[in-house]
């Protein structure tokens, strides 16, 4: 269950890969939609931690264009419900995340991302 909220926080950490290492590109993904309880208070608390551009780009690559390119200044209920869906109800069960800089592949299997590096790749 790699939801987009988690994807939004993962970057490539291979040795020497320190720029253009985020967001990781989703590849060959199997998606699942899982309903989650709507909690506007959590969303508001989480907003300062979010990278908006990365979220919108990733959602659009997955065919979801419900979020605006620019982060709105006011968070009304309609917006928060769309954000809730994209962040917390779309999950990647199988596939991979690929670093846009060094092309390192992080596989996702049974909803769990494998972020380990080989010994020679550790910074």
């Amino acid at each position: 269950m790699v939801r987009l909220i988690t994807h939004n926080l993962l970057a490539c950490h291979a040795k020497g890969c320190t720029s253009n290492n985020f967001p990781l590109q989703l590849k060959d993904v199997q998606l699942e939609q899982r309903e989650a309880e709507f909690n506007p208070d959590f969303l508001r608390r989480f907003m300062p931690k979010l990278d908006w551009g990365a979220l919108v780009d990733t959602a659009r690559q997955l065919g979801d264009d419900s979020l605006p390119l620019e982060q709105p200044e006011m968070f009304d209920d309609d917006f928060l419900r769309k954000l809730h869906h994209v962040l917390l109800e779309v999950s990647v069960e199988e596939g991979a995340m690929v670093c846009p800089n060094c092309s390192h592949i992080y596989p996702i299997s049974n909803g769990i991302p494998n972020m380990l590096l080989a010994e020679n790749e550790i910074g």
Partner: peptide, 29 residues
Amino acid sequence: RCTVSTGLQNKVSLNAMISDLASPLSFRL
């Protein structure tokens, strides 16, 4: 895998990843 299943069993979403410490999260967090 056990972390995820314990989350399900206790009705909380535990977002598990296979990782050495916090390495892949430190850039964004």
